[in-house]
Each structure stands twice: as C-alpha cells, then as structure tokens.
Amino acid sequence: MQTAQTVIKTKVKSGLQKATFESDNIAGYIFIAPWLLGFFIFTIFPILSSFALSFTKYDILSAPVFVGLQNYKEIFLTDERFWKALTVTFFYVIVYVPLRLSFALAVAMLFRVNRRGVSVYRTIFYIPSIIGGSVAVAVMWRQLFGVDGALNSILKFLGIIDKGFGWLGNPGTAIWTLILLAVWQFGSPMLIFLAGLKQIPASLYEAASIDGANKWQQFIKVTIPSLTPIIFFNLIMQTINGFMAFTQCYIITEGGPFDSTLFYAVYLFEKSFKFYAMGYGSALAWILLVIIAVFTGIVFKSSSYWVYYESKEKW
C-alpha cells in the first residue's frame, strides 16, 4: 500500500517536474542562467561595490574607511591630473571617432561597386583592424615614430629634416601618433558601411537622378541618410571604446610626455593599481560611467532628429 502510494507520488512528481522543466518560464531561465549568474556576479555586484568603495579610502591591505564625499571633492577640486586626463581623452575621442568613420565611409564608397581586385583591396584595408589592438602593433608603432624610427628615416631620406625628431617625446605630437593608430584601424566600420551601402535600394538613386540630382547630391541626400542608423550605432560604440582606450597608450607613450597623452583609463589604472588607491579609483570609474551615460543619453535623444529608420524597426 505504502509502496504503491510512493510510486504514484513519485510518478506524479516526475510528471510535474517534466511539465515544469518544459514550461516557458522555467526553461527560459535555465537557458539564460549562465548569463544571469554572470550578470550578478561580474556586473551588478562589482558596480554596486565600486559605488560603495568610491566613498572610502581603501588600499586592499586594510579594511576600507568611510570618508564620505572626500574622494569626489579631491578629484573635482584639487586633482589637476584628473582634469588633464579628461581633456586629453575628450580631445582624442572627438578627433579620432569622426576621422575613423569618415575614412571608413570614403573607402567603403570606393569598394561599393564590385570591380576586379576589390576583394583583395578590401582585405588589405581590413588587416590593420585585426591586428591593431595587439601589443605587437603598439610596440611596432613606438619604433615607427621613435627617434631612430622609420618615419624619421623617410623624412631624412626626402631631405625634409636632417636630425631625428622625437614624435613620442614631444607633447605636441605624441597624442597624434595615438590618433593616427586609431584612425589606421578603420577596417571594421568600413565593412559595416559596405554592407549598409549594398542594402540601399537602387530605386532611390534612380529617383534622385530623375529629379536631376548629381552624384554629390545623391551622396548627401540618399547615401548618408540611409546610413544614419549605422553611423549612430558606431558613433556610440566607438566613443565608449575611445573613453576606455588603454593598451596602446599604456605601451606607446605611458601617458607621457608631461601627461600629454594621459588617457582616462591609464590614469584610473595608475591610481588604482600602482598606488592602490582603490577608493579613489572607484570614484574615478564612477565619474567615467556617468560621463558615458550622459553622452549616450544625448546621442540617443538627438537620434530622432538625424537618424532615419525604415518603417521596420530592427529591434
């Protein structure tokens, strides 16, 4: 009797279990569980604790000491290197993002029509993008622009200069070597633009040319508006990446000379992991988060004025 009951019970139970594991709510959460767990462990928990830490003094060896708003006060009122880092990073982003996207679009326009050789050209222009983030390229860049480097060698050869110039050692030029390195990697946005260009219906161009629009007008009135969703997305992602730029600066210029290339991320790293001022570093991180959030918000808000969506929303 008892055994029969247990059998029935287990049967019912397993039947229920089967039903629940198959139900949308349970199955959905089982499938997204890896991300959801990671989201709480590696994103939510760190964000909250870095917010809490930003109100403390913490050197990782002893316990954090609550200091209220002191870190923020110090950063905004007395920390000149913070303002320097902010200026440098803004300058870098404002210059490299438009340059990179313009190059990407210009070259994509050249490769729009399938001619002989285009796929080979496309590969050549894309190569810098796949290796550009590596330490090898950073090290190479340092030598290209070094006093004994290839650039000076070319300039000497052409008779423009007769003594090596320190491109990296000069506060006026160092940042430009980093900008050039960033612009050099325009391959990914180029491919994205190319895909976008191919989706613009030919009928739009035909209509424009019937209305008497020349090639330039067609570019301004048809091509650019059709690409605005892509430009919009890239603008946001590239700007965020720009604010986080670290490796290339850390290796090529180490923020120098005289902090002229002190990227925000490099300054944050220095404060947090060289001087172990983790409370201060957390405050810097949160300021960065707010800056990026404000920037993204502005771009999103402005998007209704300049981004043209087709009737079908992508997401």
Binding site: F39, F45, I60, M237, I240, M244, M278
Partner: peptide, 19 residues
C-alpha cells in the same frame, strides 16, 4: 544585457580584482 554592452569595463575592474 544590451545595457552591459555599453558599460565601461573600467567601472568593474577594481571590484573584480578585489573579488
């Protein structure tokens, strides 16, 4: 999830390091 795409990694590294 989409929001985390735009989250600067620098905000997370200090607590992750501590963890």
């Amino acid at each position: 999830m989409i929001a985390t795409l735009m989250l600067p990694a620098q905000v997370l590294i200090i607590p992750q390091y501590i963890l």
